[in-house]
Design a protein around this nucleic acid. Structure first.
Lengths: 215, 215
DNA sequence: AGAATTGTTGACCAGCCTGGTCAGTAAGGG
DNA sequence: CCCTTACTGACCAGGCTGGTCAACAATTCT
Protein backbone atom coordinates (compact mmCIF):
# COMPACT_ATOMS: atom_id res chain seq x y z
CA UNK A 1 0.00 0.00 0.00
CA UNK A 2 1.78 3.14 -1.24
CA UNK A 3 1.01 6.85 -1.25
CA UNK A 4 -0.80 6.57 -4.56
CA UNK A 5 -3.34 4.26 -2.95
CA UNK A 6 -3.61 6.34 0.19
CA UNK A 7 -4.44 9.45 -1.80
CA UNK A 8 -7.31 7.75 -3.61
CA UNK A 9 -10.80 8.86 -2.74
CA UNK A 10 -12.26 6.86 0.13
CA UNK A 11 -14.88 5.13 -1.97
CA UNK A 12 -12.36 3.61 -4.35
CA UNK A 13 -10.06 2.62 -1.51
CA UNK A 14 -12.89 0.85 0.22
CA UNK A 15 -13.95 -0.91 -2.95
CA UNK A 16 -10.47 -2.33 -3.39
CA UNK A 17 -10.03 -3.24 0.25
CA UNK A 18 -13.37 -4.99 0.39
CA UNK A 19 -12.68 -6.93 -2.80
CA UNK A 20 -9.48 -8.12 -1.15
CA UNK A 21 -11.18 -8.93 2.15
CA UNK A 22 -13.80 -10.99 0.38
CA UNK A 23 -11.45 -12.94 -1.88
CA UNK A 24 -8.97 -13.81 0.86
CA UNK A 25 -11.72 -14.61 3.35
CA UNK A 26 -13.41 -16.94 0.90
CA UNK A 27 -10.42 -18.80 -0.50
CA UNK A 28 -7.54 -18.33 1.89
CA UNK A 29 -4.17 -16.85 0.95
CA UNK A 30 -2.92 -19.37 -1.55
CA UNK A 31 -6.15 -19.95 -3.47
CA UNK A 32 -7.06 -16.27 -3.57
CA UNK A 33 -6.61 -14.70 -7.00
CA UNK A 34 -5.28 -11.21 -7.53
CA UNK A 35 -7.04 -11.22 -10.91
CA UNK A 36 -10.35 -11.75 -9.14
CA UNK A 37 -9.62 -9.00 -6.66
CA UNK A 38 -8.84 -6.52 -9.42
CA UNK A 39 -11.94 -7.48 -11.36
CA UNK A 40 -14.19 -7.32 -8.31
CA UNK A 41 -12.75 -3.94 -7.40
CA UNK A 42 -13.37 -2.70 -10.93
CA UNK A 43 -9.75 -1.79 -11.66
CA UNK A 44 -7.14 -3.15 -14.05
CA UNK A 45 -4.78 -5.83 -12.90
CA UNK A 46 -1.80 -3.55 -13.43
CA UNK A 47 -3.37 -0.93 -11.21
CA UNK A 48 -3.63 -3.34 -8.31
CA UNK A 49 0.11 -3.94 -8.50
CA UNK A 50 0.63 -0.24 -8.91
CA UNK A 51 -0.92 0.23 -5.45
CA UNK A 52 0.49 -2.89 -3.76
CA UNK A 53 3.90 -4.28 -4.53
CA UNK A 54 2.84 -7.93 -4.64
CA UNK A 55 0.30 -10.43 -3.41
CA UNK A 56 1.92 -10.99 -0.04
CA UNK A 57 2.26 -7.34 0.74
CA UNK A 58 -1.35 -6.80 -0.30
CA UNK A 59 -2.34 -9.53 2.11
CA UNK A 60 -0.35 -8.02 4.96
CA UNK A 61 -1.73 -4.58 4.27
CA UNK A 62 -5.25 -5.97 4.32
CA UNK A 63 -4.62 -7.56 7.69
CA UNK A 64 -3.33 -4.31 9.09
CA UNK A 65 -6.25 -2.41 7.62
CA UNK A 66 -8.75 -4.90 9.02
CA UNK A 67 -7.22 -4.51 12.46
CA UNK A 68 -7.48 -0.76 12.18
CA UNK A 69 -11.09 -0.84 11.06
CA UNK A 70 -12.04 -3.22 13.86
CA UNK A 71 -10.19 -1.02 16.29
CA UNK A 72 -11.63 2.28 15.21
CA UNK A 73 -15.27 1.41 14.68
CA UNK A 74 -15.66 -1.47 17.10
CA UNK A 75 -13.21 -2.08 19.92
CA UNK A 76 -12.53 1.54 20.82
CA UNK A 77 -16.26 2.27 20.92
CA UNK A 78 -17.19 -0.36 23.47
CA UNK A 79 -18.49 1.21 26.64
CA UNK A 80 -16.77 -0.69 29.42
CA UNK A 81 -18.71 1.25 32.04
CA UNK A 82 -21.80 -0.77 31.23
CA UNK A 83 -21.79 -3.72 33.63
CA UNK A 84 -24.91 -5.52 32.43
CA UNK A 85 -23.98 -8.49 30.29
CA UNK A 86 -26.89 -8.32 27.89
CA UNK A 87 -26.66 -4.59 27.49
CA UNK A 88 -22.97 -4.99 26.65
CA UNK A 89 -23.84 -7.76 24.23
CA UNK A 90 -26.44 -5.58 22.56
CA UNK A 91 -24.09 -2.63 22.18
CA UNK A 92 -21.24 -4.72 20.86
CA UNK A 93 -23.53 -6.39 18.34
CA UNK A 94 -24.70 -3.05 17.09
CA UNK A 95 -21.14 -1.84 16.77
CA UNK A 96 -20.24 -4.94 14.84
CA UNK A 97 -23.11 -4.16 12.51
CA UNK A 98 -21.57 -0.72 11.99
CA UNK A 99 -18.39 -2.38 10.79
CA UNK A 100 -20.37 -4.56 8.40
CA UNK A 101 -21.99 -1.50 6.93
CA UNK A 102 -18.66 0.24 6.40
CA UNK A 103 -16.72 -2.74 5.10
CA UNK A 104 -18.90 -5.73 4.56
CA UNK A 105 -16.17 -8.38 4.52
CA UNK A 106 -13.59 -6.98 6.91
CA UNK A 107 -14.72 -9.04 9.88
CA UNK A 108 -15.06 -12.36 8.09
CA UNK A 109 -11.61 -11.72 6.67
CA UNK A 110 -10.31 -11.12 10.17
CA UNK A 111 -11.93 -14.29 11.47
CA UNK A 112 -10.34 -16.26 8.64
CA UNK A 113 -6.94 -14.78 9.40
CA UNK A 114 -7.30 -15.54 13.10
CA UNK A 115 -8.22 -19.13 12.33
CA UNK A 116 -5.31 -19.84 9.99
CA UNK A 117 -2.83 -17.43 11.49
CA UNK A 118 -0.38 -20.20 12.28
CA UNK A 119 -0.13 -21.29 8.63
CA UNK A 120 0.97 -17.89 7.39
CA UNK A 121 4.41 -16.71 8.41
CA UNK A 122 3.50 -13.18 9.35
CA UNK A 123 5.97 -10.45 10.23
CA UNK A 124 6.56 -9.75 13.91
CA UNK A 125 4.69 -6.48 13.69
CA UNK A 126 1.43 -8.24 12.77
CA UNK A 127 1.89 -11.06 15.26
CA UNK A 128 2.21 -8.45 17.96
CA UNK A 129 -0.98 -6.72 16.86
CA UNK A 130 -2.76 -10.03 16.81
CA UNK A 131 -1.75 -10.80 20.35
CA UNK A 132 -3.08 -7.46 21.56
CA UNK A 133 -6.27 -7.86 19.57
CA UNK A 134 -6.88 -11.32 20.94
CA UNK A 135 -6.82 -10.01 24.47
CA UNK A 136 -9.10 -7.10 23.90
CA UNK A 137 -11.57 -9.09 21.77
CA UNK A 138 -11.79 -11.59 24.58
CA UNK A 139 -12.48 -8.85 27.08
CA UNK A 140 -15.42 -7.31 25.22
CA UNK A 141 -17.98 -9.54 26.89
CA UNK A 142 -16.17 -10.08 30.18
CA UNK A 143 -14.33 -7.01 31.41
CA UNK A 144 -16.23 -5.19 34.17
CA UNK A 145 -19.32 -7.32 33.71
CA UNK A 146 -21.53 -8.00 36.70
CA UNK A 147 -21.66 -11.77 36.53
CA UNK A 148 -23.49 -11.99 39.85
CA UNK A 149 -26.72 -11.41 37.98
CA UNK A 150 -26.46 -14.88 36.47
CA UNK A 151 -28.36 -17.60 38.28
CA UNK A 152 -25.89 -19.48 40.42
CA UNK A 153 -27.15 -23.03 39.94
CA UNK A 154 -25.24 -23.13 36.65
CA UNK A 155 -21.49 -22.63 36.47
CA UNK A 156 -20.72 -19.15 35.25
CA UNK A 157 -18.39 -20.33 32.53
CA UNK A 158 -21.09 -22.56 31.09
CA UNK A 159 -23.65 -19.78 31.19
CA UNK A 160 -21.22 -17.52 29.39
CA UNK A 161 -20.43 -20.08 26.69
CA UNK A 162 -24.02 -21.16 26.20
CA UNK A 163 -25.11 -17.60 25.56
CA UNK A 164 -22.18 -17.03 23.19
CA UNK A 165 -22.97 -20.20 21.27
CA UNK A 166 -26.68 -19.49 21.12
CA UNK A 167 -26.13 -16.00 19.76
CA UNK A 168 -23.56 -17.29 17.31
CA UNK A 169 -25.96 -19.96 16.12
CA UNK A 170 -28.66 -17.37 15.67
CA UNK A 171 -26.27 -15.12 13.76
CA UNK A 172 -25.35 -17.89 11.37
CA UNK A 173 -28.96 -18.83 10.71
CA UNK A 174 -29.84 -15.19 10.16
CA UNK A 175 -26.98 -14.83 7.69
CA UNK A 176 -28.26 -17.88 5.84
CA UNK A 177 -31.80 -16.52 5.79
CA UNK A 178 -30.71 -13.13 4.41
CA UNK A 179 -28.47 -14.75 1.82
CA UNK A 180 -31.33 -16.92 0.58
CA UNK A 181 -34.14 -14.42 0.40
CA UNK A 182 -32.32 -11.69 -1.45
CA UNK A 183 -29.08 -11.71 -3.37
CA UNK A 184 -28.82 -8.05 -2.51
CA UNK A 185 -25.85 -6.75 -0.56
CA UNK A 186 -26.24 -6.34 3.15
CA UNK A 187 -26.46 -2.60 2.75
CA UNK A 188 -29.72 -2.93 0.81
CA UNK A 189 -31.51 -5.09 3.34
CA UNK A 190 -33.98 -3.54 5.72
CA UNK A 191 -32.48 -4.41 9.06
CA UNK A 192 -35.06 -3.10 11.51
CA UNK A 193 -37.17 -6.27 11.82
CA UNK A 194 -34.02 -8.27 12.42
CA UNK A 195 -33.03 -5.97 15.24
CA UNK A 196 -36.37 -6.53 16.92
CA UNK A 197 -35.96 -10.26 16.54
CA UNK A 198 -32.49 -10.03 18.02
CA UNK A 199 -33.59 -7.96 21.01
CA UNK A 200 -36.36 -10.42 21.59
CA UNK A 201 -33.80 -13.22 21.77
CA UNK A 202 -31.75 -11.21 24.24
CA UNK A 203 -34.80 -10.82 26.46
CA UNK A 204 -35.50 -14.51 26.31
CA UNK A 205 -31.92 -15.33 27.16
CA UNK A 206 -32.16 -12.96 30.09
CA UNK A 207 -35.20 -14.91 31.21
CA UNK A 208 -33.22 -18.10 30.99
CA UNK A 209 -29.90 -17.18 32.52
CA UNK A 210 -30.52 -14.28 34.92
CA UNK A 211 -31.69 -14.62 38.47
CA UNK A 212 -35.36 -13.82 38.87
CA UNK A 213 -34.76 -10.42 40.39
CA UNK A 214 -32.74 -9.25 37.40
CA UNK A 215 -35.03 -10.39 34.64
CA UNK B 1 -17.90 -45.79 -10.00
CA UNK B 2 -17.65 -49.05 -11.99
CA UNK B 3 -17.50 -52.72 -11.11
CA UNK B 4 -13.73 -52.59 -10.83
CA UNK B 5 -14.06 -50.14 -7.96
CA UNK B 6 -16.88 -52.02 -6.33
CA UNK B 7 -14.86 -55.23 -6.25
CA UNK B 8 -11.95 -53.57 -4.45
CA UNK B 9 -11.37 -54.51 -0.84
CA UNK B 10 -13.29 -52.33 1.56
CA UNK B 11 -10.22 -50.66 3.01
CA UNK B 12 -9.03 -49.34 -0.35
CA UNK B 13 -12.52 -48.25 -1.31
CA UNK B 14 -12.86 -46.29 1.90
CA UNK B 15 -9.45 -44.71 1.49
CA UNK B 16 -10.44 -43.41 -1.93
CA UNK B 17 -13.91 -42.31 -0.88
CA UNK B 18 -12.59 -40.46 2.13
CA UNK B 19 -9.89 -38.74 0.11
CA UNK B 20 -12.65 -37.53 -2.18
CA UNK B 21 -14.93 -36.48 0.66
CA UNK B 22 -12.16 -34.46 2.23
CA UNK B 23 -10.98 -32.73 -0.92
CA UNK B 24 -14.46 -31.76 -2.11
CA UNK B 25 -15.58 -30.74 1.37
CA UNK B 26 -12.54 -28.51 1.79
CA UNK B 27 -12.42 -26.81 -1.59
CA UNK B 28 -15.80 -27.24 -3.22
CA UNK B 29 -16.40 -28.85 -6.60
CA UNK B 30 -14.52 -26.52 -8.87
CA UNK B 31 -11.44 -25.96 -6.75
CA UNK B 32 -11.11 -29.60 -5.78
CA UNK B 33 -8.24 -31.38 -7.51
CA UNK B 34 -8.44 -34.94 -8.79
CA UNK B 35 -4.63 -35.06 -8.55
CA UNK B 36 -4.87 -34.34 -4.84
CA UNK B 37 -7.54 -36.97 -4.36
CA UNK B 38 -5.45 -39.63 -6.09
CA UNK B 39 -2.36 -38.68 -4.10
CA UNK B 40 -4.23 -38.59 -0.79
CA UNK B 41 -5.77 -41.97 -1.56
CA UNK B 42 -2.37 -43.38 -2.37
CA UNK B 43 -3.21 -44.44 -5.92
CA UNK B 44 -2.04 -43.30 -9.32
CA UNK B 45 -3.95 -40.61 -11.14
CA UNK B 46 -4.76 -42.99 -13.97
CA UNK B 47 -6.26 -45.44 -11.52
CA UNK B 48 -8.71 -42.88 -10.23
CA UNK B 49 -10.04 -42.39 -13.75
CA UNK B 50 -10.04 -46.12 -14.23
CA UNK B 51 -12.57 -46.34 -11.37
CA UNK B 52 -14.56 -43.18 -12.11
CA UNK B 53 -15.21 -41.95 -15.61
CA UNK B 54 -14.53 -38.28 -14.85
CA UNK B 55 -14.51 -35.63 -12.16
CA UNK B 56 -18.22 -34.93 -12.28
CA UNK B 57 -19.22 -38.55 -12.10
CA UNK B 58 -16.81 -39.04 -9.20
CA UNK B 59 -18.50 -36.15 -7.44
CA UNK B 60 -21.96 -37.55 -8.02
CA UNK B 61 -20.91 -41.00 -6.89
CA UNK B 62 -19.46 -39.49 -3.72
CA UNK B 63 -22.72 -37.73 -3.01
CA UNK B 64 -24.66 -40.93 -3.45
CA UNK B 65 -22.20 -42.83 -1.30
CA UNK B 66 -22.35 -40.21 1.44
CA UNK B 67 -26.12 -40.44 1.47
CA UNK B 68 -25.92 -44.21 1.76
CA UNK B 69 -23.41 -44.07 4.61
CA UNK B 70 -25.49 -41.53 6.49
CA UNK B 71 -28.54 -43.64 5.89
CA UNK B 72 -27.09 -46.95 6.94
CA UNK B 73 -25.10 -45.99 9.98
CA UNK B 74 -27.04 -42.98 11.20
CA UNK B 75 -30.59 -42.31 10.08
CA UNK B 76 -31.81 -45.90 10.00
CA UNK B 77 -30.41 -46.51 13.49
CA UNK B 78 -32.28 -43.73 15.24
CA UNK B 79 -34.68 -45.09 17.79
CA UNK B 80 -37.84 -43.09 17.26
CA UNK B 81 -39.52 -44.84 20.19
CA UNK B 82 -37.45 -42.76 22.57
CA UNK B 83 -39.54 -39.70 23.41
CA UNK B 84 -37.12 -37.86 25.68
CA UNK B 85 -35.44 -35.04 23.80
CA UNK B 86 -32.07 -35.25 25.47
CA UNK B 87 -31.93 -39.00 25.30
CA UNK B 88 -32.65 -38.75 21.58
CA UNK B 89 -29.99 -36.09 21.25
CA UNK B 90 -27.49 -38.28 23.07
CA UNK B 91 -28.19 -41.30 20.91
CA UNK B 92 -28.09 -39.38 17.67
CA UNK B 93 -24.79 -37.77 18.64
CA UNK B 94 -23.28 -41.14 19.37
CA UNK B 95 -24.50 -42.47 16.06
CA UNK B 96 -22.99 -39.51 14.29
CA UNK B 97 -19.72 -40.34 16.00
CA UNK B 98 -19.99 -43.84 14.56
CA UNK B 99 -20.15 -42.33 11.10
CA UNK B 100 -17.08 -40.23 11.82
CA UNK B 101 -15.18 -43.31 12.85
CA UNK B 102 -16.10 -45.17 9.69
CA UNK B 103 -15.62 -42.34 7.23
CA UNK B 104 -14.10 -39.33 8.84
CA UNK B 105 -15.07 -36.78 6.20
CA UNK B 106 -18.37 -38.12 4.90
CA UNK B 107 -20.54 -35.85 7.04
CA UNK B 108 -18.62 -32.63 6.47
CA UNK B 109 -18.77 -33.44 2.77
CA UNK B 110 -22.51 -33.88 3.04
CA UNK B 111 -22.90 -30.61 4.88
CA UNK B 112 -20.89 -28.83 2.19
CA UNK B 113 -23.03 -30.36 -0.53
CA UNK B 114 -26.24 -29.39 1.25
CA UNK B 115 -25.02 -25.83 1.60
CA UNK B 116 -24.03 -25.33 -2.03
CA UNK B 117 -26.52 -27.75 -3.56
CA UNK B 118 -28.12 -24.99 -5.61
CA UNK B 119 -24.84 -24.12 -7.38
CA UNK B 120 -24.31 -27.62 -8.72
CA UNK B 121 -26.69 -28.84 -11.38
CA UNK B 122 -27.31 -32.28 -9.98
CA UNK B 123 -29.23 -35.04 -11.77
CA UNK B 124 -32.86 -35.53 -10.80
CA UNK B 125 -32.01 -38.76 -9.00
CA UNK B 126 -29.79 -36.95 -6.48
CA UNK B 127 -32.13 -34.01 -6.02
CA UNK B 128 -34.82 -36.48 -5.10
CA UNK B 129 -32.58 -38.18 -2.56
CA UNK B 130 -31.71 -34.83 -1.11
CA UNK B 131 -35.31 -33.91 -0.62
CA UNK B 132 -36.00 -37.12 1.23
CA UNK B 133 -32.87 -36.74 3.32
CA UNK B 134 -33.74 -33.20 4.27
CA UNK B 135 -37.04 -34.32 5.70
CA UNK B 136 -35.70 -37.18 7.69
CA UNK B 137 -32.68 -35.26 8.99
CA UNK B 138 -35.07 -32.61 10.21
CA UNK B 139 -37.16 -35.18 11.99
CA UNK B 140 -34.33 -36.75 13.99
CA UNK B 141 -34.74 -34.36 16.91
CA UNK B 142 -38.45 -33.70 16.56
CA UNK B 143 -40.45 -36.76 15.53
CA UNK B 144 -42.24 -38.37 18.44
CA UNK B 145 -40.49 -36.18 21.00
CA UNK B 146 -42.32 -35.28 24.19
CA UNK B 147 -41.98 -31.52 24.06
CA UNK B 148 -44.26 -31.07 27.05
CA UNK B 149 -41.25 -31.64 29.27
CA UNK B 150 -39.85 -28.26 28.26
CA UNK B 151 -40.63 -25.40 30.57
CA UNK B 152 -43.54 -23.49 29.11
CA UNK B 153 -42.48 -19.94 29.88
CA UNK B 154 -40.25 -20.06 26.80
CA UNK B 155 -41.64 -20.70 23.34
CA UNK B 156 -40.93 -24.25 22.30
CA UNK B 157 -39.36 -23.30 19.03
CA UNK B 158 -36.87 -21.06 20.77
CA UNK B 159 -36.01 -23.74 23.28
CA UNK B 160 -35.42 -26.16 20.46
CA UNK B 161 -33.21 -23.78 18.52
CA UNK B 162 -31.26 -22.60 21.55
CA UNK B 163 -30.35 -26.15 22.46
CA UNK B 164 -29.39 -26.94 18.88
CA UNK B 165 -27.23 -23.85 18.64
CA UNK B 166 -25.60 -24.45 21.99
CA UNK B 167 -24.69 -28.01 21.13
CA UNK B 168 -23.46 -26.95 17.73
CA UNK B 169 -21.29 -24.25 19.31
CA UNK B 170 -19.88 -26.78 21.72
CA UNK B 171 -19.20 -29.20 18.89
CA UNK B 172 -17.28 -26.58 16.94
CA UNK B 173 -15.19 -25.57 19.92
CA UNK B 174 -14.45 -29.21 20.67
CA UNK B 175 -13.36 -29.78 17.08
CA UNK B 176 -11.06 -26.80 17.35
CA UNK B 177 -9.61 -28.06 20.63
CA UNK B 178 -8.93 -31.53 19.24
CA UNK B 179 -7.41 -30.14 16.08
CA UNK B 180 -5.05 -27.95 18.06
CA UNK B 181 -3.83 -30.37 20.67
CA UNK B 182 -2.96 -33.26 18.40
CA UNK B 183 -2.55 -33.42 14.65
CA UNK B 184 -3.53 -37.05 14.92
CA UNK B 185 -6.55 -38.38 13.09
CA UNK B 186 -9.79 -38.56 14.98
CA UNK B 187 -9.45 -42.30 15.24
CA UNK B 188 -6.36 -41.96 17.42
CA UNK B 189 -7.87 -39.61 19.96
CA UNK B 190 -9.10 -40.93 23.25
CA UNK B 191 -12.74 -39.93 23.20
CA UNK B 192 -13.97 -41.05 26.61
CA UNK B 193 -13.27 -37.79 28.48
CA UNK B 194 -15.05 -35.86 25.76
CA UNK B 195 -18.11 -38.04 26.08
CA UNK B 196 -18.26 -37.30 29.79
CA UNK B 197 -17.95 -33.61 29.09
CA UNK B 198 -20.72 -33.86 26.52
CA UNK B 199 -23.07 -35.74 28.83
CA UNK B 200 -22.39 -33.15 31.48
CA UNK B 201 -23.50 -30.44 29.09
CA UNK B 202 -26.66 -32.39 28.30
CA UNK B 203 -27.46 -32.56 32.02
CA UNK B 204 -26.91 -28.86 32.40
CA UNK B 205 -29.13 -28.10 29.44
CA UNK B 206 -31.78 -30.32 30.96
CA UNK B 207 -31.51 -28.22 34.11
CA UNK B 208 -31.99 -25.11 32.04
CA UNK B 209 -34.78 -26.05 29.68
CA UNK B 210 -36.80 -28.80 31.36
CA UNK B 211 -39.57 -28.25 33.85
CA UNK B 212 -38.46 -28.91 37.40
CA UNK B 213 -40.22 -32.25 37.63
CA UNK B 214 -38.34 -33.62 34.63
CA UNK B 215 -34.84 -32.54 35.51
C1' DA C 1 3.31 -73.25 -20.45
C1' DG C 2 1.62 -69.37 -22.77
C1' DA C 3 -2.26 -66.53 -24.01
C1' DA C 4 -5.69 -63.41 -22.62
C1' DT C 5 -7.73 -60.47 -19.51
C1' DT C 6 -7.70 -57.16 -15.93
C1' DG C 7 -5.39 -53.73 -12.93
C1' DT C 8 -2.27 -49.89 -12.39
C1' DT C 9 0.80 -46.46 -13.44
C1' DG C 10 2.99 -41.83 -14.46
C1' DA C 11 4.56 -39.30 -18.50
C1' DC C 12 2.19 -36.54 -21.44
C1' DC C 13 -1.37 -33.40 -23.56
C1' DA C 14 -3.75 -28.97 -24.46
C1' DG C 15 -5.66 -25.44 -22.04
C1' DC C 16 -6.51 -22.43 -18.29
C1' DC C 17 -5.10 -19.55 -14.63
C1' DT C 18 -1.39 -17.83 -11.80
C1' DG C 19 1.47 -13.59 -9.96
C1' DG C 20 3.85 -10.18 -11.98
C1' DT C 21 5.80 -6.94 -15.77
C1' DC C 22 5.89 -3.26 -18.87
C1' DA C 23 5.27 -0.60 -23.06
C1' DG C 24 1.87 2.35 -24.08
C1' DT C 25 -1.93 5.62 -23.36
C1' DA C 26 -4.30 9.41 -21.19
C1' DA C 27 -4.70 13.29 -18.33
C1' DG C 28 -3.29 17.11 -15.84
C1' DG C 29 -0.10 20.79 -14.45
C1' DG C 30 3.64 23.77 -15.40
C1' DC D 1 5.28 21.75 -25.13
C1' DC D 2 7.30 18.48 -21.66
C1' DC D 3 7.09 16.01 -17.30
C1' DT D 4 4.95 13.53 -13.96
C1' DT D 5 1.45 10.56 -12.35
C1' DA D 6 -2.43 7.26 -13.01
C1' DC D 7 -3.89 3.47 -15.20
C1' DT D 8 -4.46 -0.35 -18.43
C1' DG D 9 -4.46 -5.01 -20.57
C1' DA D 10 -1.60 -7.83 -23.64
C1' DC D 11 1.97 -10.62 -22.50
C1' DC D 12 5.19 -13.80 -19.99
C1' DA D 13 6.91 -18.15 -17.91
C1' DG D 14 5.47 -21.46 -15.01
C1' DG D 15 2.30 -24.35 -12.48
C1' DC D 16 -1.71 -26.94 -12.16
C1' DT D 17 -5.98 -28.68 -14.46
C1' DG D 18 -8.92 -32.89 -16.02
C1' DG D 19 -8.18 -36.48 -18.85
C1' DT D 20 -5.64 -40.02 -22.06
C1' DC D 21 -2.88 -43.81 -23.17
C1' DA D 22 1.00 -46.84 -24.18
C1' DA D 23 3.48 -49.65 -21.35
C1' DC D 24 3.97 -52.70 -17.82
C1' DA D 25 2.33 -55.98 -13.90
C1' DA D 26 -0.65 -59.26 -11.99
C1' DT D 27 -4.10 -62.52 -12.32
C1' DT D 28 -6.90 -65.81 -14.61
C1' DC D 29 -7.94 -68.91 -18.30
C1' DT D 30 -6.88 -72.48 -21.65
Amino acid sequence: MNDAFKSLDREKQNRILDAGFQEFAEKGYKQASTNQIAKAAGIGKGTLFYYFKNKQSLFHDLIEEAFNIADETYLSQINFEETDFFERLRESSELKMEVYRKQEHALTFMAQVFMHMNEYKLPERLLEKRKQAEEIWGSVLTKNIDFSKFRDDIPQEKTFNYIRWTIEGYRMELEQRIKLQGLSALSNVKLEPYYEEFYDHLDTLKMIYYKEEFR
